[in-house]
Design a binder for these strands. Structure first.
Lengths: 138, 138
DNA sequence: TTAATTGCAAACCCTTTGCTTCATC
DNA sequence: GATGAAGCAAAGGGTTTGCAATTAA
């Protein structure tokens, strides 16, 4: 599933520039920041190309995406501390008992500032989807 | 900062309906889902009102937002396992050493499906912003 | 009464997509 | 030379906003 990555790709100067930029950057750039940076080298590159390559690189696992977004937000009226399990198959969000990550003193010491909050999210396949999958596999 | 919440609010039937819906719902609805549900009771409510009230309720802390989004994503060329610290003041994202949350067997047992992945994110105020804040406080 | 809130619709922002042209393999 | 990828620009989707009309306090 993830090994035949060389399925069909061409290394273009645009893609290479994006890869280089990401390899060098420590700032977790947005698409726009990548666009701005790469444009210094390739003034004619288009934003669409940046997005297409980011999609491609994320799909290949060469780059990680850190979603922060505002789109597709979900809202939770339950204010009691609890964690969430996200089904990667159907998108459902399940409440699970509060998970309190215990931060080691060493880890705390490595924080680049004052820690106010932490959140552990869980990802997987929910029971419903597992059941459906079983049918597929049979 | 968070105690004079009653600054200026009027309880409208729209706001009440949204609050009720969220209190009842277990599905972590999106704005659109809330809109659809509330519309059964208040057919003339507008999507804009739903969004405005969600903003208001989140700001007041009456509702939590679970961001999942695709907008404002950041990208990371560093594939080594590591965690992130998000500065809530300036929006910067810092790498921190991989944080491996240890899930208790009890917690694992409570998962509503097959756990594939987990991620702990940290939120706070980065050194730069703390320094800037110090000026303000002085 | 009066200021917060609504409905409506247009505007926004980020991201995706269709199409033609370009260039890597 | 085939075909994957680029450039451009228009479309898309979720969310925000301006404004006049309502309505809670």
């Amino acid at each position: 599933m993830s090994n035949n990555k060389t399925a069909s790709r061409r290394m273009t100067k645009q893609r290479q520039a994006i890869i280089n930029m990401l390899a060098k950057s420590k700032e977790h750039p947005t698409a726009e920041m990548i666009y701005a940076a790469v444009r210094q080298e390739l003034p004619d590159i288009s934003l669409g190309t940046v997005y297409r390559n980011l999609q491609f690189l994320v799909a290949e696992g060469q780059v990680h995406e850190i979603a922060q977004g505002r789109v597709g937000s979900r809202f939770d009226g339950n204010l009691l501390p609890h964690s969430h399990f996200f089904c990667q198959s159907c998108g459902a969000v399940y409440d699970i008992p509060a998970y309190e990550a215990e931060i080691s003193p060493e880890c705390l010491h490595n924080m680049p500032g004052q820690l106010l909050n932490q959140r552990t999210d869980f990802f997987g396949i929910c029971q419903d989807c597992l059941a459906a999958e079983r049918v597929k596999k049979a």
